[in-house]
């Protein structure tokens, strides 16, 4: 599949998918989206790159040993989930209790609310990305 058309298309489309996934991730708290969907989109972008450039080339290009990275991503995601879940326990609130803060208004962004759930979602994103990528690298041969 490593034709010029695929390569060029992948180069254009993959960043777009990344941006979309980030948008979905951030808005996921109370509208459509979330960590899982964002992760699946990220993985689909990466798999597009894999298809266009081939696994070996991409690994060499990014200069990483992917399975190691994937595993670290998976574990750190899980740890993040555990951590965000357990912090309320230290304050004697039930596991997974959420809190949110309203950030001071910044001129063009308007009122920003940040909730602890986003760290949980980030953990989900990391876990799902890591596990899906390790599955991909396991199957691709």
């Amino acid at each position: 599949m490593t034709t010029l058309i695929t390569k060029t298309a992948a180069k254009i489309v993959a960043p777009l998918i990344f941006v979309t996934s980030m948008v979905l991730f951030v808005q996921g708290h109370n509208t459509i989206g979330g960590g899982f969907v964002a992760a699946v989109l990220i993985v689909s972008a990466i798999s597009l790159l894999y298809i266009a450039y081939g696994t070996e080339n991409l690994t060499r290009l990014l200069n990483i040993y992917p399975s190691e990275l994937n595993r670290k991503m998976l574990v750190s995601g899980l740890m993040l989930i555990l951590l965000t879940g357990s912090i309320p326990v230290l304050f004697n609130m039930p596991f997974l209790t959420q809190a949110y803060w309203v950030l001071p208004t910044i001129s063009f962004l308007g009122e920003l609310k940040i909730s602890t759930a986003i760290f949980f979602d980030l953990g989900v994103l990391l876990t799902v990305t890591g596990s899906l990528l390790s599955i991909l690298s396991g199957v691709s041969r």
């Binding site: 899982f36 699946v40 799902v128 596990s131 599955i135 396991g138």
Partner: peptide
Amino acid sequence: VLTAIVISLGTTSFILVLLL
């Protein structure tokens, strides 16, 4: 359903690798 989909994603990928 979202939870069920996530679970089925996991099992599906496992079963496909197992098939291999």
